[in-house]
């Protein structure tokens, strides 16, 4: 923190426009949604005030909680798979043992720029039971017994739809972490006298504390992003089979649009928002505890 605070009018001058814009585009719709969530509203001018009836229904809604559990599972996989793997990759790229550094830096980000439809397509062709690459590979190595209709497997489907999501965003977190490590002295990574294993260990011990703040930002991005996960799963399974890969945002969208239940859909959005805050809050508590120990 600066010891000498700038004058208040300068602060206000700098903060006013960005925050006014932010409140207009983000908070007013959220408050509007909170307001509508108190109504039975089938989409149209007529609304009936029902108080907290939608929230009572929400608490008892099995699909909502099932979706939430799917989101938690997704978050767990993605924190490890996206941020964790991205961190390891960044450490590897920063050692002097990995060649073609600039190619890895450039290519990794690319998948996150492609619309979910196409990522979904490619992975559908991997999982496809007849023409798919996964079953073809299993047959090739003589494990035909393992081939199956992958996306129809109710136990596996959540994991299977998470993998494309993980793969797609590794590069995104790589890019962020790389920019953070760019402020660190190169010699830390490249000391010539160290062998690979030690260089790697050393980067973790020294680098991690230095970029801690950015790693936390990545974790917050990852958790909040996966609370809202929608596109990839929508393209691949639309939440199916049944509701076995349903996630919160998709459920909210389905209720609002496919079922045209705007009042209840608004209640679901508010529910997602509150649960998101709880998850992030819980995460910060845990990380505070850990950093104190």
């Amino acid at each position: 923190m600066l010891t000498r605070r700038p004058p208040l009018r300068i602060l206000i001058g700098y903060l006013l426009i960005p925050l006014a814009l932010y409140v207009f585009a983000v908070f007013i719709p959220l408050i509007t949604a909170a307001f509508y969530s108190m109504f039975e509203w089938k989409g149209g001018p007529n609304k009936t005030f029902t108080g907290i009836a939608n929230y009572i229904a929400l608490i008892q809604d099995k699909i909502f909680w099932l979706s939430f559990s799917h989101n938690l599972y997704l978050i767990l996989l993605c924190v490890i798979g996206q941020v964790g793997v991205a961190f390891v990759f960044v450490m590897m790229i920063n050692t002097r043992f990995v060649k073609l550094k600039s190619i890895h830096r450039t290519f990794g980000f690319f998948p996150s720029t492609i619309a979910a439809v196409y990522v979904g397509f490619i992975w559908l062709m991997i999982y496809d039971s007849r023409r798919g690459i996964l079953n073809w590979f299993l047959e090739l190595i003589g494990r035909e017994d393992l081939t199956q209709v992958w996306l129809n497997n109710t136990d596996l489907v959540m994991t299977l739809v998470s993998i494309p999501l993980i793969w797609q965003y590794i590069g995104y977190y790589m890019l962020i972490l790389l920019s953070a490590t760019s402020s660190i002295d190169k010699e830390i990574f490249e000391s010539a006298e160290l062998d690979g294993a030690n260089a790697f260990q050393r980067s973790i011990h020294i680098v991690l504390p230095m970029i801690k703040n950015t790693v936390i930002v990545c974790l917050v991005l990852c958790v909040s992003g996966n609370m809202k996960a929608f596109d990839n799963i929508y393209v691949m399974t639309a939440g199916g089979p049944g509701n076995n890969s349903m996630v919160l945002a998709m459920y909210g969208y389905k209720v609002s649009f496919a079922q045209q239940n705007m009042g209840y859909g608004s209640a679901i959005s508010v529910g997602i928002f509150v649960l998101g805050l709880l998850v992030i809050g819980g995460m910060q508590l845990v990380s505070n505890k850990l950093s104190k120990d």
């Binding site: 585009a25 719709p29 989409g43 991005l221 919160l248 859909g265 959005s269 805050l277």
Partner: peptide, 30 residues
């Protein structure tokens, strides 16, 4: 990051909240 003032934490949390908004189900209010 640098200026200590009342409201710093509030703005921080407000921005955090924005990242948790499920856009797809909020299209109608928007």
């Amino acid at each position: 990051a640098r200026v200590k003032f009342r409201g710093n934490r509030v703005i921080w949390i407000m921005l955090l909240m924005g990242m948790l908004i499920p856009v797809h189900s909020l299209l109608v209010p928007i």
